[in-house]
Nucleic acid binder design. Structure first.
Lengths: 182, 182
DNA sequence: GGCTTTGTTCAATTATTATTGAACAAAGCT
DNA sequence: AGCTTTGTTCAATAATAATTGAACAAAGCC
């Protein structure tokens, strides 16, 4: 509560264990919260949401060490989080003259964000699913120990699974198209 | 630490710790795998995927105790999993004459499955998000300590968040409509 | 070359989430 | 009524996932 921030000089001289934030506006803290929830919704760790959120709601590009210290994250987490975000295309490294560090800005086009997520996280799962369904089909064809009745039932169910899969495949381009209008 | 299992009685005389299945066909085991993956994709525990998968790929409706023993799940997990699935409308209790237990069948219409998930899991999150965004907006309006430049930036970002939210709201009916054709 | 800054990797630790199992409630049966 | 079957709840435990931090690599600078 007190001791608002003694550091005039450089950083955090005392041994206080959790300097809650270096300098986040309440507005920024709240925005980061929003992204943490979003990250969880998409099955990503909290830290990834925090990192993207901070970059999104910061006027200037930031380097890794600043991100880590603003969010009280370790270098390790921050590095991994940034890698993931770069992979998704959610964050872009920016060259800053006179500074050896990589600075990052947020990609804010919904199309690109969702597109990256679909490409990198969902499509691979779908393809994996396709392989599994093929395997299932093979099992069904090979298994000689089924009664006719059983065979009819399993056939129907496996077929339905294939239909679902196909539907999902059709759905994604549609989502892209819809969000592309953003 | 050992003392594997004193029960000499009937099944499972050796100390093998995981009698893998009571009587699942390989085909069924494989199908259940598929659903476990699906469950994880949708942020649900493995056991939920197993339960739905077993019901989906079983010709006959099953009561809770049979589900638990086929999957080697505890009564507790099975009960909770079934509750969740009932809540989503993914599974339907069926009255079986001469049996006091509730039997369950799988709802296999993609429309209903996804619809239930959207209604019960996603829409509430979206609404929560809406509240948060409103709060964010309020913070932005209240905060007097911002430079004009800062205000412009934050305004733009918060606005964009609102646009995303709106897009999401528009997207869901579209998904429903698309899957409704199943 | 040696020193410093920047960033990555990964085994160990910590936090989070799922599962179990025992206690309990409800309802059928005799 | 008591006894049994069916199902739920929830605190304790186990399993899984995220985070840390220290060791390392790469590259700039002097």
């Amino acid at each position: 509560m007190e001791s608002p921030d003694p550091t005039p000089a450089k950083a955090n001289a005392g041994g206080d264990p959790a300097p809650p934030a270096e300098s986040l506006l309440p507005l920024q803290a709240e925005a980061i919260e929003v992204f943490v929830r979003l990250a969880r919704l998409f099955g990503q760790p909290k830290s990834v949401g925090e990192i993207y959120g901070l970059i999104y709601i910061s006027p200037e590009p930031m380097p890794m060490d600043v991100i880590a210290s603003r969010l009280n994250l370790s270098k390790g987490s921050t590095s991994q989080g940034l890698r993931l975000l770069k992979g998704l295309g959610a964050v872009r490294p920016i060259y800053q003259v006179g500074d050896r560090r990589d600075f990052y800005t947020a990609e804010t086009s919904l199309k690109k964000l969702v597109g990256g997520y679909l490409d990198d996280a969902i499509i691979p799962l779908l393809n994996q699913g396709q392989d599994r369904l093929a395997h299932l089909q093979r099992l069904l064809e090979e298994d000689g120990g089924l009664t006719a009745e059983q065979r009819v039932f399993f056939d129907e169910r496996v077929n339905k699974l294939n239909k679902w899969h196909e539907r999902a495949h059709q759905l994604f381009p549609l989502i892209r198209k819809f969000l592309g209008t953003s």
